[in-house]
Every structure is written in C-alpha cells, then in structure tokens.
Design a protein around this nucleic acid. Structure first.
Lengths: 217, 217
DNA sequence: CAGTGTGAATATCTTCACAGCA
DNA sequence: TGCTGTGAAGATATTCACACTG
C-alpha cells in the first residue's frame, strides 16, 4: 500500500475506485495514455472533484496541468485496494447462480480465483463444474485451509445462507460476499458484502412507478 | 401508492425498504405477527430510528406501544414501492450469468417475470432456456412491445453492454439493471441500476488488506 | 409504559472554488 | 495555461432524544 492518510476511507470511495479501475482498463485497451479527472469523471458518471478527492486518500498520482497516466493510475489504485495479487475464493451453494459464477471468467481475470466449490446436496457432491469438484459443505474447514482460501462467496438459497456463513467462519475465512437474498451475521473482523440484485429490481420498479405517477411517459 | 410526502425519498431508503420486505417475509414464514422497529432493526442490521424514518416517508404504519403488524407492514411497503403487481422483464445476453438468471426462481417469486431472452450470437438464437426461446437482439424492439416489457436486464460481456442498452432504449424500456461490469449511458427518464459484484469483491479485498495491515489476524 | 413518529443535532458525503504547480 | 490537490461550503443521511399515543 502506498502511504494512505490517517483518515478513514469512505465505503463509497472504495466502490468508486473499483469503477475507476474498470474504466481505466477500458481506456488502456483503447490506447488512451493520459486522462484528466474531467474525462474520467464523464465515463464513470461522477463529479471530477469526487475523483480527485477519492484518489487523495491514497496519494498524489496526477501531474498538474496534464492529468493522470492511465496505466500508472490503474496500477496505483489496484495496489491501494490490495489487488496487486490474487485471492483464493471458496463458493458455497452450487445452484444456477453458483454454477454461473464458477464459469464466470471475469472473476479470475480480476484476480479472484475460485479454488473450491461446496454444497450440501448429496446429488451435487462429486460433480465437476468448470474443472472443479464439488465438495460437501462440511468439508469446508479442512479444504479451505488446504487451498488457502481467504474469501467466501455464498450462493445458497436464503434459508441456508447463515449455515454457509457458519461453515466459512469455522474455516477461518476473512471476508464474505453474500449473493443470497438474506441478511447474515458474522463477527466484526470478518468483512461482509451483499450482492442483492432483487434490491436493484425493487429500486427500478419504484422509480418507474414514481415516473409514471409524475406523468413522465 | 398510499400518500407519500412531498419530500424526495433517498435512494438509500429504497434499498433498505427492499431489505425490510425480505426480513418481514422471513418473519412471516416463522409465524411472527408483530415486530418492533428495534427487533426489525436487529435483523436488518440497521438503526431502529432509521427504520421509523424510512417508513415515515410513506405513511404511519405502526401502533404506538406495540410495534408493526408484520403482514400489513410488508404489504404497505410493497405497495409503496410499486410491487403490488408483476413486472415483465427482457434479458439481453444469454451467457452463464444470463442463463442463471433465467432459471432463478426468486425473481419470479418477487414479481419480476422474464418474458424474453435475447442474444446476438447465432449459435444461441433459437435455443431454449427454462422454457423461453432465445431471440436475436435486433428483434428486441418488436418482441418487447409484443410482450409488454418494461424492464431490461443486461448480462452481456462489458464491451457489448452499451449496444444492449441501445436496443432496449429503442424498445421503449423504462428501467435497466446492468450486470455487465461496464458503465452505460441512458436518457434521464430511463432508470439504471448497476449490479457490480466485482466491486464487492474489490471492497472485501481492500478491507481484508487493511485489517491485515492493522495486525487483526 | 412500551414503542412510534419526528424535530433537532450530528455525522458523513459531495461539490465548489481556487491556490499552486508542471 | 490547464489541471491537480484541497480547505471550506453545501447537501444528504443517520442518529439522538423525547413528546405523544394506543
């Protein structure tokens, strides 16, 4: 990590940094070498000072009067976020969504390698998905340590999400991304993120309903 | 919609309401009839006054000294969000993730029915997934109107996301949920939500890195 | 009297505006 | 001159604290 100020970094900043990385990579592929906060802001859909402020939490990466060097900035952000390495991930719940993630190459491309797949359904255990054997969830503890897993992904049905969490905790996991539409609990030293896409559909439905009430259509 | 104050409702409130619905449904299934903001707050991982304030945007649903009637509150929130009906959805991009969503029953259970699947890959067109024929993306316009679609889901690779958006716009869609890891642009009267789960993995990686730096493990 | 509904207080996040540097 | 980096201002969101009610 470069130097990082003695200031708490807002959650919102982190998720925007992820967006910046995404856009910087796209720019890199298009051969763009240098970018201003103005330009990057447009393609990320945020305010330019927002970008400058977000970056300021980690250091000074820009050249006044010029902008940012695309490749360098991308690398600097990735380093700041701890993405200058790969992370081993265990996936619990080999349903439709779990299978999709097991086959989803973008994850690996971004440095998140699913090294273990687990399910409690006897019919699924032993099956092979994308070159990975499905193990019984009760084996999470020994397998995780063997495979050096640090992050868990939960793609079980909602009612089994907490059980999956418990297995992951026993396995000494440090972070969890929960795709199941259910709240889960974990000790404060274990990071939890929710990917709750029904949520997003709810929001869309609400906004459309409101727009319709306003007579926008 | 009940009565809704003449006050803008924060985005954050909307996504919490979605969580409340989730938890209220779980409580209902467990036979809980009445709940206080305190109890609901615990299971949603938020502050009790937050809940009361969120609900206050839409009306008064509680009984002082008692709490909220689980079923009634859930119904009231759903009505406020425009979820007292079903929404027809078109899905663009029948890859791993698209297939998973087509087979994901929770969506339908929540009132979002995928009525059309589209892809531009000739090998996929004509294929049947979960009882739905895959059509060529160029047919989005006519098919969408025929099927009365209001919401689009994008599950294409990032570089094809904007093209999918354009098709959806032509089809007169009113809201888009984008699962592709790419920023997209749409006119302001079309609601856009991002489901960016790589984002969440980035956040987890960052938090773990930070915790490690703090010597937490 | 337990628990809601809400104004007021606090905390957090975003945007502005501009000094200062390449 | 052009664009960064940043303190100060403004906008939002969250939490507190308590009057009030079933």
């Amino acid at each position: 990590m470069p130097y990082q100020k003695f200031e708490r970094i807002p959650r919102a900043t982190i998720s925007r940094l992820a967006i910046y990385v995404q856009e910087l990579e796209a720019m890199e592929q298009h051969g763009v070498k240098v970018v201003s906060s103005e330009k990057l802001a447009v393609s990320c859909g945020v305010n330019p000072s927002q970008i400058r402020k977000d970056l300021a939490y980690f250091g000074e990466f820009g050249l006044r009067g010029v902008g940012y060097h695309v490749f360098e900035l991308k690398e600097a952000i990735k380093q700041s976020l701890g993405l200058d390495r790969t992370w081993n991930v265990a996936l619990v719940g080999v349903g439709n969504l779990g299978r999709a993630l097991l086959r989803y190459n973008i994850l690996r491309k971004r440095g998140f390698v699913i090294v273990g797949a687990f399910d409690c359904d006897p019919f699924k255990i032993g099956e092979e998905v994308n070159g990975l054997e499905v193990y019984c969830s009760s084996r999470l503890q020994d397998k995780s340590r063997e495979l050096n897993v640090e992050i868990g992904i939960i793609t079980t049905p909602p009612e089994r999400a907490q059980r999956a969490v418990n297995y992951l905790l026993e396995a000494g996991i440090k972070g969890i991304v929960n795709f199941a539409p259910a709240r889960i609990t974990a000790p404060p030293n274990v990071a939890v993120e929710y990917v709750d896409f029904i949520n997003h559909l709810f929001s869309i439905a609400f906004i459309i309903t409101q727009n319709q009430a306003k007579g926008l259509y």
